[in-house]
Amino acid sequence: MKLVVTDGATLSGGGVSLERFSRYAQVTVYDLTPPEQLTERIADADAVLCNKTPIPAAVFDQCPKLRYIGECATGYNNIDIAAAKAHGVIVCNVAGYSTDAVAQHTFALILHDYSRVAQYDAAVRQGAWKQAKTFCIMPYPMQELAGKKLAVVGYGSIGRKVAAIGAAFGMEVLVATRTQPQNCPYPLVSLDEAFRQADVLTLHTPLTEQTAGMVSAARLRTMKPTALLVNTARGGLIVEADLAQALKDGTIAGAALDVLTEEPMGDTPLADLPNCTITPHTAWTPLETRQRLLALAEENLRCYLAGTPQNVITAP
C-alpha cells in the first residue's frame, strides 16, 4: 500500500516523528503540498494523511486508487466530504486529542486580557517598578474572572472542558449549542442570547456552512462594550472586517484569537489593533498533544487496514 503525507511539516518535528506509519505502508512525505501539485502527488496513492491540505471534489475524480484519508485534526472542513462519500473513500478524523491543550490556551488568552501579565512584565523590564514611589505599580487595569459571565459556544469535548475551568474560576457559565446535551450543569441559551449576556464569549464549534461568519456586525452590536471575544476554533467563524470595526469603535472591549480566516496570516484588518491579541494557531501544539494526535492517527489507520475503521466521517 502507498501512503502519502501531504503536509508533514505541520505534523512532524519538535519531538514527534512520522516514522511510525512506515510499518503499515510505503510512505512518501511532503512538507507541504500546493493545490496545483496535489493530484500529481497522490495520483497512485491508496491512502493519504493530511492536516490542513485542501482536498476538493475534483481530486477524487482524478485519483481512483484513493480509498482512505486520515485527517490529522478534529476539524475536516478542508476535505470535500460529500465527494469522498460518493467515491467510496473513507475519511477518519482525530477527535479529542487536543481538548486539554485548547482549553488551556483559551484561558491563557482570557487571563492575558484579565490579568495583564505581559504588560506588567514589559513595564518591569523597562524600569517602571524601580522608579516607583510605592511598593507596586498599577497602570493597567485588571479584573477578576469570578462572577463574570462566560458564554461557551459549542459544547463538544473542548467546550465542556472550558466550561468546567470557567466554573472553577467562579465564572457564571452559559452554554449555546446546536444539540441538546445530556446532563449539562449550566444554563442553555440561544446563540443570540449568549452574545448579549457574555462578559467573555468563547467559540468552540466546527466551521460549517451554518456557522461560517456567525460572528457578524449584527451580533457584535448586541454585546456588552466591556466584552471579550475568544476564538480557538476556526477563523472562518468570524467576519474579520466586522470584528475589526467593532474593536476600533469600542463596540466590544477586546478579542483574543488563535485562528484566522487566512492561515498563514494574510492582510487581515485585525493586525496591529491594540485590543486584539493574536497567536499563530498554536493551541494544539504542546508536545504531549501532538504525540497523542499521531498515536490516534496511527490507530485510525491500523483499524482501517484491519477492516474495522473508527472515527469515520464518511459513514452513512
Rank of each mutant, 00 (worst) to 15 (best):
C276V: 02
L111A: 10
T308G: 00
N78C: 14
Y76I: 11
T314R: 02
T222D: 06
D272I: 00
D192Q: 10
L145N: 02
V230N: 06
A295R: 15
Q104G: 06
A45P: 01
N183T: 05
Q197F: 02
T268N: 04
G170E: 05
K85S: 14
I81F: 10
C276W: 02
R116I: 05
P185Q: 07
A25T: 02
L191P: 01
A241S: 13
N311W: 06
D31P: 02
P64V: 14
L18N: 04
L296Y: 13
L257N: 00
L229M: 06
L229C: 02
L3N: 01
G156C: 03
K130S: 12
G236W: 11
D61F: 06
I79M: 09
P64G: 08
P309I: 11
G159P: 06
N275T: 03
Q245S: 12
T279P: 03
A9T: 07
L32Y: 13
T74V: 13
L273R: 00
K161H: 13
Q126K: 15
A227S: 08
I110T: 12
A73N: 10
F60G: 04
E263K: 13
A132E: 03
A9L: 13
L257I: 07
Y114I: 03
A271E: 08
G13N: 08
R160V: 01
R221K: 14
A132Y: 07
L273C: 03
D113F: 15
A168W: 10
R292E: 14
Y114N: 02
Q210T: 11
Q37P: 04
E172I: 06
E298A: 12
V153A: 04
D44P: 01
I165T: 15
L32S: 11
F107H: 06
C184D: 09
D80H: 11
I165G: 00
L174M: 12
D199H: 09
V215S: 00
I79E: 09
D80G: 07
G14Q: 08
T6C: 13
N275P: 00
P280A: 11
D46M: 06
I313L: 11
V175F: 11
T33K: 05
Y30G: 01
Q310M: 13
P264A: 14
P286E: 12
E19I: 03
E299K: 15
L3R: 03
K148W: 03
C63N: 04
E36S: 13
A255C: 03
D113C: 11
I252Y: 00
T211N: 08
A271G: 00
C276N: 06
A146I: 05
K149H: 14
I42T: 04
K2A: 11
V215Y: 01
Q131C: 04
L18I: 01
A83N: 09
P141W: 12
H281D: 01
T202A: 05
